[in-house]
Amino acid sequence: MPTPLSIVVVEEDRDRAIAIVDALKDSGDYDVHVIGNVTGLARKIAAFLPDIVLIDIDNPTRDMLEELTLASGPLDRPVAMFVSGAAGGLARAAVEAGVSAYVVDGLQPERLKPVLDTAIARFQMMRQMRTELDETRRALEERKVIDRAKGLLMKAKGIDEDEAYAILRKAAMDQGRKVVDVAQALVTAAGLLR
């Protein structure tokens, strides 16, 4: 029985961190630590001496981990990015899913695969949820702006809602812009004139 892999997850969002830890625990016996505050990241990681560090590709603090890939870094063992030592397909899948894993050199790829597979699946799911949430939020914002612009037009010109929308749509088409952009311009201008 080999010692359990020690994994550090760098994730500032508490709920996402919990989701990743749960998924990892379900897939095997791992010793998982979460770093939620990236101040002094390299030092904190060095304190755990992990086998693997998992971090979201969108996290700008990822560049701090690059220091660990140098022999003179805070770890006394050389660290390499997982993708250099393992099958190219898995590496590519990891990059596309938005997960990057930093792994101590010399670890067998077969012990890494389940960790990476789990992380990739989890990251993909979260990414999808985040995209959907962003889209919903944006749609909601856009509708609010358009509603306000319609209200302004209705009041100023004494017209009904459908006519107000038609005016916005025509202006957008004439100028080659989106309806929401025209609406935003109108709302901003009205705010200035008030």
């Binding site: 590709i57 996290n59 560049d63 690059e66 993708v83 990059v95």
Partner: peptide, 15 residues
């Protein structure tokens, strides 16, 4: 890209 490692990886892995 959010980081230089990300730029490098996107290029290296064909994104």
């Amino acid at each position: 890209a959010p980081s230089w490692s990300s730029v490098r990886d996107m290029l290296a892995f064909g994104r």
